[in-house]
Design a protein around this nucleic acid. Structure first.
Length: 151
DNA sequence: GCCAACGTTGGC
DNA sequence: GCCAACGTTGGC
């Protein structure tokens, strides 16, 4: 069992949008490191911090879980899609995705507040230059976030 | 809109 | 394999 932080732009997919869906297909990842996390490490049941990015108040907005292993991202084959990749083939898909399921919305734990808690300072999302849309979260970091969300 | 910090591409 | 140019992310 592992833990992750997954960034989503609320204008595209907010925690409220996610809660209204039985599962959220996480298509559109076009970064190899992030793909490798999904393909090689993510397992059903892993915990997810649902993070709102590129918005007025970035931060952790909810809890979700991984509900599928990785499978080919169909948007790579769709020439009309923003995510189309001409180098991907059915035989050798280049991009993978997983499904997640939103569990609950939480009070927003803003990026600003996250930075004030020393027990979160190791989180990858807080590191300078960190841009990955999916990052691993340690058990200690997960537990610390849960404590803060319960207050 | 700015820009730091990456990641990717492609010529050589 | 190097690396300059370019593209993207995402907070501010």
């Amino acid at each position: 069992m592992a833990y992750w932080l997954m960034k989503s732009e609320p204008a595209e997919m907010s925690i409220d949008d996610a809660l209204a869906m039985p599962a959220v297909p996480w298509f559109g990842v076009r970064n190899y490191q992030t793909r490798n996390f999904m393909r090689d490490v993510m397992r059903v049941g892993d915990g997810v911090l649902f993070y709102h990015s590129s918005c007025a108040e970035p931060g952790i907005a909810g809890i979700a879980e991984v509900v599928s292993t990785a499978y080919p991202d169909h948007t790579q084959y769709d020439s009309k899609s923003h995510y189309f990749d001409p180098k991907a083939t059915q035989e050798t898909p280049r991009w993978m995705m997983v499904d997640i399921k939103a569990i609950r919305k939480t009070p927003l734990l803003s990026l600003t507040e996250m930075r004030t808690h020393s027990e979160l300072e190791t989180m990858q999302v807080l590191q300078k230059g960190s841009r990955l849309s999916i990052t691993p979260v340690t058990t200690a970091e997960w537990n610390a976030v849960m404590m803060l969300l319960m207050k």
